[in-house]
Every structure is written in structure tokens, then in C-alpha cells.
Design a protein around this nucleic acid. Sequence first.
DNA 1: CCTTAATGCAGCTTATTTACTGCCTTTATA
DNA 2: TATAAAGGCAGTAAATAAGCTGCATTAAGG
Lengths: 128, 128
Amino acid sequence: MELVFKALADQTRRNMLDKLLQSPGITLGELIEGTDMRRQSASKHVQILEEAGLVHVEWRGREKKHFLNPIPVREISRRWLDKYNEHQADALLSMKDALEETPENVRREQPQVKRGPEVTSFFTPIED
Amino acid sequence: MELVFKALADQTRRNMLDKLLQSPGITLGELIEGTDMRRQSASKHVQILEEAGLVHVEWRGREKKHFLNPIPVREISRRWLDKYNEHQADALLSMKDALEETPENVRREQPQVKRGPEVTSFFTPIED
DNA sequence: CCTTAATGCAGCTTATTTACTGCCTTTATA
DNA sequence: TATAAAGGCAGTAAATAAGCTGCATTAAGG
């Protein structure tokens, strides 16, 4: 995972992933079209993306075709998004259990399980 | 998004997010328990996570409570995972259309829409 | 074959990042 | 009110990363 996050930390590489999503199978030359980067630099970026498992390549003669691999991103999603939702569910269940176990003490104290913040209240997304 | 990916690029900060997922509302002191880091370093990390919108804080007197905000991770997932799946669906639809439009020419050539790689075939996840 | 196109590797310079020490501000509490 | 706890800010040295130039390697195509 270290390699994945390091790879995603650079905007040039993120743009490359976007381009590969839209145009699967393009070559290095097509990848740098519209940019002012040298092929050598782009090649290093591609290597970093490959080592992170974010890009899959297939050779056709002297041409190297590049594809986005979504699996590492899925792992990221699982690590925090899915787990966060599970915890939210657990918190609700604990609260429900507490209510059912001591129905006469319902209002005595707040539920022990600390819920996360409301997911829509305090974050304003920022563009890349 | 730049700030989000930079924030996620450091293992210390990713461990912090894991800890906040498991223990919402903990303070800086609790965050560095079990590590050999100074509070000053951890404080800088927290600041980076806050500026990225990955961590939400609430002040209680002199204590600062920290919470994981999952929204930026959801944006990452949308950017590549969801879009990737949409493209896959588009590719399948295009193939289906091609088959229906020229049923007698089905085997003449391969479908034009380039599909992405098999998502389970070439990637072996790496631990953090 | 021989030339050209597509790509990779090595080395260098500059900019960014990290963790540290030292000091300051704010808030409980004895 | 004095003191300790929780946290922030500034500055510095070492490690990391990004882009460049130059050269090497492999495969198409006449």
C-alpha cells in the first residue's frame, strides 16, 4: 500500500490514471500528448504506477499499452469507507442494545459508543 | 484533492486514520500512545489531515477531539472505481449494440471498444 | 541490413517533506 | 492563584522526490 499512496500523491500521475480510464490501452507517446513533459519523465511516472499495481501493461511489439487497474483504489475504499460504515452500524446496534437492555434507564446517560461526525455536515470537497 | 493525496502519502498519517476509525474522539496524546513520536510531530500530521478534510476536530476545553471524515476517500472511490465500473458497463453495451446491429457480421472483427484488464488476474495486493 | 520510432536507465540539480528541539498559549485543578 | 497538562508555532538538518539531459536497447519497415 505504501507504493500505492506514494504513486497517487503526484498530480501528474493522477492525471495519467484519468487518461487511462478514458482511453484504455494507449501508449506512452499518447499519454504525454497535450503536456509539456519529456518522455523520460513520463516513463518514470509510469514505472511508479506499475510498481504500485495501479497500471497494467501489455506489450505489442515495440509498443507498450497501458491500462488502469482499479483494485488498489478498491482496497483504499475498503480500508476506510467500508469500515467506517460498519462502525456506524455497530454504533447504532450498541445504542439499540443499550436501550433494550435497560429500558428504565434509557435517559440516565448518553450512549457510550462515540459516533463519528455527520458525513455531510463539515466537509466541502476541493477540486484537484 | 491535492491536499488529500499528500496527506494519505505518509504511513504515520494513515495509521492515525486507522486509529481514529477505531477510536473516534481521541486526543493527540492518545493518538501518539504506543509510538515513539513527539507530540510536536504528531500535531503537524494532524494539521495536514485537517487541511485535507480527512479529520474533523471538536474542542472540549483544553482537549481537542479528533474524528475521521470519510468523504474525501469517497471522492477517490468515485473518481476511479465508480467511473471504471461505468466504463466497463459502457463497453459491454457497445459490444451488445454491435452484435445486434450487424448480426451476420458478428465474427468479422473484434469489438472496437477496448475493455480494461480482468480485475482479478494481474494484481496481488501488498500490505501497508 | 539500416534507419527510425518507442521506450528504458543513469546521473544531476532543485524543491519538498520529515522529525527533531525549544519556546509560547490556554485551560483545569490543587 | 500557582502549577501542571494539552496543544501550537518556529526553526533546522537529513532524507525524498521530480524534472531535466544524455545514452542504451529493442522492434518495424523500406
